[in-house]
Design a protein around this nucleic acid. Structure first.
Lengths: 125, 125
DNA sequence: TCGACATTTGCATATATGTGCAAATATACT
DNA sequence: AGTATATTTGCACATATATGCAAATGTCGA
């Protein structure tokens, strides 16, 4: 049971829920800097929360060059699906700013990869 | 969002999940001593976990005489339902002993001291 | 009121967790 | 090699949490 409790414990933090909501919404990999820009939270804070989500078996990573992309691990059992349903049952209003920011950030992707060097936050907000 | 995060945080503990699983399974009120007997965990430990579940708005209490009965709060939103689905998607094996004990304990409701509060359980709200 | 029972609470302690900063690692480019 | 970018990690600190015991509270019935 510990495996599941670890996952559940991970859901008890606002930042981690916000990260998960982004990944659920966009339904693809996001790199750390994209998550940072979307949530406007320090990189090392995001990094540490992602690490926990990874340790709990909720996220997987894949490095491509300088970037590390994270995405949800979707298992066969109903558990993953129910986690997603649970998060999706939270009021959208809590996440609207995050999603807006994420879409803005993702629109700057040139290929299917993170838009290098474009995370200078002054130009088009 | 804090209200929901508090609830999610509550789900990150094995004892609390086991308590919730009992309540979901039996689908009625349980008194503290019945939960204690089912899970074989100290009364004060159960009491404290129940207190957190209550503070998070997951459980409600109703005192009848010496006994305090607890049951799930079911809200209109999908959240409650999804919490239940999530807990129900955990492997039954983790809870089989608990459920067995609970059924054993509940079958004594008519004869046991704890059953005094239960003889009039027809008015369950 | 007293005693028995059911449950909660206060206190102590050990452990876990979140956050911030600085430094470290990893990779790409020149 | 040296620099820039992306991300992680180690350390420190404050706060939160779980647990155990003893004592307190609330309720019933004699």
């Amino acid at each position: 049971m510990n495996e599941y409790i670890k996952k559940l414990k991970c859901l008890g933090d606002e930042t981690r829920i916000r990260i998960l909501k982004l990944l659920i919404t966009v339904n693809k990999e996001l790199c750390v800097c994209e998550i940072v820009d979307s949530l406007k939270i320090q990189t090392y804070t995001i990094s540490k929360h992602i690490k926990e989500l990874k340790n709990a078996g909720i996220l997987k990573e894949s490095r491509r060059g300088k970037f590390i992309f994270y995405s949800l691990i979707l298992n066969e059992d109903n558990f993953s699906e129910n986690v997603i349903n649970l998060i999706n049952s939270l009021p959208d209003a809590y996440f609207s700013d995050d999603i807006l920011m994420m879409n803005k950030r993702l629109s700057r992707r040139e290929t299917d990869s993170c838009a290098t060097g474009l995370s200078d936050k002054g130009d088009d907000k």
